[in-house]
Amino acid sequence: MPQPILTIKKLTKIYGNNVIFRDIDLTVAEGDTIVIIGPSGTGKSTLLRCINLLTHPDGGEIWLDADEITAKGANEDLVRQHIGMVFQNFLLFNHLTALDNVKLGLTKVKHMNDKAAEAKAFEELKRVGLSDRAHHYPGQLSGGQQQRVAIARALAMDPRIMLFDEPTSALDPELIGEVLEVMRDLSKSGMTMLVVTHEMGFAREVADRIVFMEKGNIVEEGSPDDLFYRPKFERTREFLWKITELYGKKENADGPSAAEDTESNQPAAEENA
């Protein structure tokens, strides 16, 4: 078996007296798209923030390829370059145009010359379908467009893995589709992705594995079919049921295929009961 891109061993995170999660294990193989689902407050965002060292774990190890990034003396800024992150609320740099948002990391972190950086930034914007918005400021873009710029910004750094933290949950329903489409294409192009989302249509179509987290534990993980049709735990089925109810309607706006997915979920869950 080839070396996984990301290996998480016995990861523990504690805020004060509050154990967010303890002894979590997770591996992500090259080219895989892993979807993490779970109730809010479970520690999904915290897990992603630990992975690119925006917050520091209190125990355990994280390996990126053959390097332990949680080791003492690891160059964190270098680590973050190799891990792209997309946030729920986009977090574009408000005072910079779309192009400059994407370009900044290239000039400041990768030390590319201005011309090369600009060309690459433009390419990345084209890849998310926004070349015509290059000179717009975040305040002049829709939420969907902003999130696509944020994806382009992360992609520009040529990361080994992309982390997405509920990338569509702050979007109006009619804007979700364009972002999911970009992510779908990205996944198909072979990018390794770890995605926290409750868009079940997307998860079923794209995920190699779905991980169900609850109260800081990984309850269950497996292929979409396993989780949807043959969940090992009652809790998993209940959560999937709830989430399809909740998000299904939103996803209908996403097109017939997504709608189909949601519909097919429910009988499946019932079937299993």
Binding site: L54, F87, N94, V109, A150
Partner: peptide
């Protein structure tokens, strides 16, 4: 978040 986003791309 602006700081976090900046750190996330390696600044």
């Amino acid at each position: 978040g602006q700081m976090m986003a900046a750190r996330a791309i390696g600044l």
